[in-house]
């Protein structure tokens, strides 16, 4: 029987799932509700703080980890959901679409993060 490449996808899925379980709810409260609603009256200071944070290499690395692992986690589940829902599509296309999509978006995020504070 042929060895599956699934361990790569599953490891990224697992890491992302663990990350989202541990900090996901907090992260959404911060970047979605705290930034937009509670701190709405002080956009300039929020900008300064986040810029300072994302200018630091460690901040960039943390943000990239969060984004990339969330993407691989969610795309892995969505890929398998297409199978569960009996959506008819060539498997190779779906692999490129979901895992390729997660990779491209992670790459874009890395480039954008690189440019901050540079």
């Amino acid at each position: 029987m042929r060895r599956s490449n699934e361990p790569i996808a599953w490891s990224l899925f697992g890491a992302g799932g663990m990350l989202l379980a541990f900090v996901g709810p907090g992260l959404i409260v911060v970047t979605g509700l705290l930034l937009g609603v509670l701190l709405a009256d002080q956009p300039a200071s929020v900008y300064e703080s986040l810029l300072r944070w994302l200018s630091h290499p460690l901040g960039k690395l943390l943000m990239l980890s969060v984004v990339a692992l969330s993407l691989y986690h969610t795309c892995h589940r969505l890929y398998h959901a297409t199978h569960d829902l009996h959506l008819r599509a060539p498997n190779a296309l779906m692999l490129v679409l979901f895992y390729g999509g997660a990779t491209v978006l992670s790459g874009i995020t890395a480039v954008v993060l690189w440019s901050i504070g540079a």
Partner: peptide, 10 residues
């Protein structure tokens, strides 16, 4: 929704 949220974060 977690995927959509990640896009918004990006």
């Amino acid at each position: 929704p977690l995927f959509a949220y990640t896009l918004l974060l990006i």
